[in-house]
């Protein structure tokens, strides 16, 4: 054994000893550390447990139906897909303790205008108003029931079925035009709408009645229809219910 060591230089043996000491110290430390600290799987389990045990604040709509009749009204109206908590805020506590905590009941105009103020970034067809001119200072609930929101007036004939078009047109420059200005509607269309259809304009001269250079109409944007986009029909570029041209 001694011979074996003598074959190596003294310095190498000393360094080797220190190195061994280090390695064994590291191994020892690793050994005495409880495995729970090193075990990745246990950490993952603990995290998942911690995450899943966090408290829920939004109860989900189904819970509301148990006690609140308004739910049945809501589920038939335009707000049918709206969760109760979208407007009333987180209500898990209320569902567990109905008498002690009450969810918010938004009554201000801002609560509705958050979604319904006109914004050019919003999808066309989404019902929007300009809150400055739309019955200012009046709370929305005086005319609209938020659980069954409808326009307070009886819908005009076309709008009843073509609501999306009507809404789009309502914020477009064509808002003043009656549907019948461009479409002739046979009486039968109201009875068997798919068999008898309303007419649609046939050619460029129809739009030209108001928009051509020599049209007598006032304050409409005018173009020379003999040169402007000559080989296309007007509505191939301009959506007549929302003519997006300055």
């Amino acid at each position: 054994m001694k011979n074996f060591f003598q074959r190596f230089p003294d310095s190498l043996i000393r360094i080797g000893a220190v190195f061994l000491l280090f390695v064994s110290a590291i191994l020892f430390v690793r050994f005495i550390i409880p495995s729970s600290l090193k075990n990745e799987e246990e950490h993952v389990k603990a995290t998942i447990e911690r995450e899943t045990s966090r408290s829920v604040r939004y109860a989900g709509s189904d819970v509301c139906a148990d006690c609140h009749e308004e739910y049945n009204v809501k589920k038939l109206g335009y707000h049918r897909n709206l969760s109760c908590e979208t407007c009333h805020g987180p209500a898990k506590e209320h569902s567990e303790n109905p008498t002690e905590t009450k969810p918010v009941v938004p009554k201000k105009r801002e609560a509705c205008s958050l979604c319904h103020t006109y914004n050019p970034s919003r999808p066309t067809g989404f019902p929007q108003i300009n809150p400055v001119v739309h019955n200012p200072l009046k709370p929305c609930v005086t005319c609209h029931n938020p659980h069954d929101p409808k326009p307070p007036r009886v819908p005009q004939e076309c709008q009843a079925c073509h609501a999306e078009i009507a809404r789009t047109k309502a914020v477009s420059p064509h808002v003043q035009l009656e549907c019948t200005t461009c479409h002739t509607v046979p009486q039968q269309h109201k009875v068997i709408p798919r068999e008898v259809k309303a007419s649609i304009p046939g050619d460029r001269t129809f739009c030209g009645k108001c928009h051509s250079k020599d049209s007598p109409a006032k304050e409409t944007p005018k173009v020379d229809i003999s040169t402007h986009g000559e080989k296309y029909l007007c509505w191939q570029c301009h959506y007549p219910h929302m003519p997006e041209v300055e």
Binding site: P9, D10, S11, L12, R14
Partner: peptide, 18 residues
């Protein structure tokens, strides 16, 4: 020095190689 005492030519030679 890790209590090393060897300053012989041979050990110094080894140090250089190391």
């Amino acid at each position: 020095s890790l209590f090393s005492t060897d300053t012989s030519e041979k050990s110094v030679e080894f140090d250089k190689k190391a």
